[in-house]
């Protein structure tokens, strides 16, 4: 775990199911095999909720994630640069970028297609 705000941690070695980890005074039971370098959920994360590492969101949970589960491309999805979503009939438009208060020089909002319509 890197920041106290994080809800995932990085496995520095292979983690096997049922192993009990002592993290921040609590016990976390590993639910499934996690390869070294991959992420483990420190707590339950609801589908659609932000996954936090380095103290910042690294994407949204694309499925409900249980504490101790492997967190990777099957249950965590980026919300950035997703032209496929912006142009898909059913997909949600990607969220707008946060913009600074001083908007001088900005070329306008990044836009979901409905704003152009």
């Amino acid at each position: 775990m890197i920041s106290s705000r994080d809800n995932v941690a990085t496995a520095l070695e292979q983690l096997e199911p049922e192993r009990r980890l002592q993290i921040d005074g609590g016990t976390l039971v590993v639910r499934e095999a996690i390869p070294p370098g991959h992420k483990i959920a420190l707590q339950a994360i609801a589908a659609g909720a932000p996954v936090v590492k380095y103290g910042s969101p690294i994407g949204l949970a694309s499925a409900a994630i249980a504490a101790g589960a492997h967190v990777h491309t099957h249950n965590l999805s980026s919300s950035r640069g997703r032209g496929d979503l912006a142009h898909s009939a059913t997909g949600e438009p990607a969220p707008r970028l946060a913009e600074p208060d001083d908007r001088g020089g900005l070329v306008g909002p990044v836009t979901p297609s409905k704003e152009r319509a």
């Binding site: 992420k39 590492k53 380095y54 910042s56 491309t73 965590l76 999805s77 980026s78």
Partner: peptide
Amino acid sequence: IRGGLTTIEEKSL
């Protein structure tokens, strides 16, 4: 991704 990085946000941070 094989190395455990999942999203561009994670890689960027």
